[in-house]
Amino acid sequence: MNPVYQPTNLTNSIIALVFYLIMAGFAIYSMLTMYALIRFGKSKLVAFGVCLLYLIISASLYSAAVDNLGLIKF
């Protein structure tokens, strides 16, 4: 498991802050979309299947982004 990213200077701190703020917005919209699909979708099976697929893809991309964030050294 990768250790939590710890910025070492102001530039890295600002980059990390901006990144996590953007991720917070992404998470909020993602949860809203999944909620709307599960609540109002005709088929619960389709809704959960699509949400699961989306979560897997998003988690992979997020993991890659966090790895890149950890490699940034100014």
Binding site: F26, S58, L61, A64, N68, L71, K73
Partner: peptide
């Protein structure tokens, strides 16, 4: 380095929003 990591980070975030 370090531009490639920043660039890859931006690309990754852009991809996440494309998926969203």
């Amino acid at each position: 380095s370090p531009y490639v990591q920043v660039y890859n980070l931006i690309k990754g975030v852009y991809l996440m929003f494309l998926m969203l």
